[in-house]
Amino acid sequence: MDEVVDRYVSAFNAHDLGAIMDCYCSKPVTVGPGGPVEGRSEIASYYTRTWQAFPDMHFTVLRKVVDGAATAVTAVATGRHTGPFALTTGDVLQSTGRYISVRCCWFFALQEGVIVNQQIFYDQLELYLQLGLPLSRLGPPD
């Protein structure tokens, strides 16, 4: 069943939105640092915005652990920030041209060969510092 996760990673690295969406059920839920994203159209929009901000983003899988209908993946995301990127503070960071390399982890709940739930974790502080944001900008909004 975890082959869907392999297809997901390949589709992400190819920036193939159709192939990524084929990995999800009809009513998927994804939860990441920005909060929950529900439904296929919201999830598709998330990937589109991510690739606009980092058009060369690529994941290198470090480890995959499978336990029945659950799969966990650790990876390193790399890419150059060349487009608008929505921060978890609600601000949008315009292109910095900076290269990022950030550790991340995904937990997938799988059912009938598709992703029904995905939890996304990444080191936000590591990412924001690599993008050149000062620590003072990472606090609560004014």
Rank of each mutant, 00 (worst) to 15 (best):
Y8L: 13
E38N: 03
Y47M: 05
I115T: 01
R103E: 07
V102P: 00
Q52I: 09
V92S: 10
L110F: 04
D56P: 05
V65G: 09
S101W: 07
V116P: 00
T60V: 13
K27Q: 08
Q52N: 11
D67R: 10
D22N: 15
I120W: 02
V73C: 10
P55W: 06
F59T: 02
P141H: 12
A70R: 06
S10Q: 14
C23A: 10
A53H: 00
A70N: 06
P28E: 02
R103W: 03
L133R: 11
P84V: 11
G35W: 03
V4Q: 08
Q94K: 13
T71S: 07
C105E: 01
Q111Y: 05
S95K: 14
Q130H: 12
C23H: 03
L125Q: 11
G79I: 06
E126T: 15
V92C: 15
A86E: 15
Y128N: 15
L62H: 11
Q118H: 09
G32K: 06
V73N: 02
A14K: 11
A86I: 04
P33T: 12
R98W: 06
L129T: 15
R40P: 01
L17H: 03
Y47D: 03
I20W: 01
Q119Y: 14
D123F: 14
A53D: 00
H58M: 15
G32E: 06
I115H: 00
V73E: 03
Y8M: 12
N13L: 13
V4C: 13
T71G: 00
D67T: 12
F85S: 01
V29R: 02
V76Q: 08
G97E: 05
A19T: 09
R103M: 09
R49S: 11
A109P: 00
Q130I: 12
D91H: 08
D22Y: 07
S10R: 11
F121G: 00
G79W: 15
L131T: 14
A44W: 02
K27N: 15
D123C: 09
P55M: 09
T89I: 07
P134H: 13
V31M: 07
R40N: 10
G90A: 06
E112R: 14
D2G: 06
D22R: 13
C104A: 13
R137D: 07
E126I: 05
G34A: 12
A69I: 04
A19H: 06
Q94S: 12
E126D: 11
A109L: 15
W106F: 08
L110W: 00
F54K: 03
V65N: 13
F59K: 04
V29L: 05
L133E: 13
